[in-house]
Design a protein around this nucleic acid. Structure first.
Lengths: 213, 213
DNA sequence: ACCTGAACACCGTTCAAGT
DNA sequence: ACCTGAACACCGTTCAAGT
């Protein structure tokens, strides 16, 4: 194993050498573009070529291709968490939750965020990833609780429920993503109606304790 | 290209030689077991070994690993369609649709059926696959229409909507599939409440013309 | 007609050799 | 310290050689 492998968001023990810092930046930019273009199975060789570095250098910065993808998804997690924290101050908590879920689905369209929930334990164990994860879980839990206090969301769903359901609209619409890029909005509408208190029927199974095992 | 490649459900132009028929049966059984155990990325080598045949023989029966997976998912499609057709005679059409979606999610748990909606055009173009697909689309459309006539489902959703949303509960629950195998039932409950007419809000986007491009 | 396994092109990952 | 590209183990797929 390489001694200097660590995730890009972990605070560097000692600053990187100039060329290494430059390479990492180029690597992240190239990976973001390649993943956006070809999905999660963009090849490491293509990413390295686009970044203008050797394949070996990729694995010096990230232990695994999956970790590299994780580092990029992490960015979106932080962005969404920040938005959610802003929305915690909104007057209409139901509207705030819907706005938050809309923003989250927009990010998912760009780069599948849902993989994080199903990601390998190794990636989830990364301190930076699990910190960003917990931050987001906290935000969602608070948004849901406020919406419930105002009677905008049914009382029998939990924060973990909403986290697991968050990506469902994008996933349902994904087969038609190219021909109808806004379809997920329709299914977010259906989901949100299912989260409302009006017409809610008792759910046949208890909620999970946490959204990740 | 091989001259004799065709999907297992297509009626054979002339009957297979005895050893070929035996091999195909062993291949399908082995593939079903390996896919169930290791998911869609079970290796062709492992499947061939389990079936007791050479790797080359796999590609004599199916042009692609994806087509092999397609042949197995096709089985479940047919099973579900048959169940749906039985349920068309039920008195309570809303209950019938819920029962159908429940059965479909149970099958998805066993082997991801949703991949079919996102499958490669080559697999979808297979006559046997597209026939099974259209059969199922017809069944779902009829179940939805009957439920709407009885006022059990909101009027502004369509058959294609329900087809796209069908796998959402299983997908949402998949990160916890091992620790909480029945969780999808909870999210099917949320989804179905979203499909009900009570408390339905107007949807922000028009429905798709067809569930596959 | 059908089966087989060596061979091919590709993949993520490793590591000895360089600066 | 860091970078590099040849090398490795694996993958799906092909095909010449067999029966």
């Amino acid at each position: 194993m390489h001694p200097t492998n660590r995730l890009e968001t972990a605070p560097p023990a000692r600053p990187l050498r100039a060329d290494a810092a430059r390479n990492r930046e180029a690597l992240l930019a190239a990976a973001s573009a390649e993943f956006a273009a070809h999905g999660a199975d963009a090849s490491v060789a293509d990413i390295a070529r686009r970044a203008g570095i050797g394949k070996g250098t990729v694995f010096r910065h990230f232990p695994t291709k999956e970790h590299l993808l994780g580092a990029i998804v992490l960015d979106r997690l932080v962005t969404i968490s920040e938005l959610g924290e802003d929305l915690l101050g909104a007057g209409d908590a139901g509207r705030a939750l819907l706005e938050f879920l809309t923003a989250a689905c927009e990010r998912v369209q760009q780069l599948d965020l849902s993989f994080l929930l199903a990601a390998s334990p190794a990636v989830l164990a990364e301190p930076a990833v699990s910190a960003a994860q917990e931050r987001m879980f906290g935000v969602v839990g608070a948004l849901v609780a406020r919406a419930q206090e105002q009677g905008a969301v049914r009382a029998d769903v939990t924060g973990p429920d909403v986290i697991l359901l968050m990506c469902a609209p994008s996933h349902a619409a994904s087969p038609l993503q190219d021909s109808d890029p806004g379809l997920w909005r329709r299914y977010l509408g259906v989901l949100f109606d299912g989260l409302r208190p009006e017409g809610a029927h008792p759910l046949p199974h208890p909620p999970p304790a946490a959204p990740v095992p």
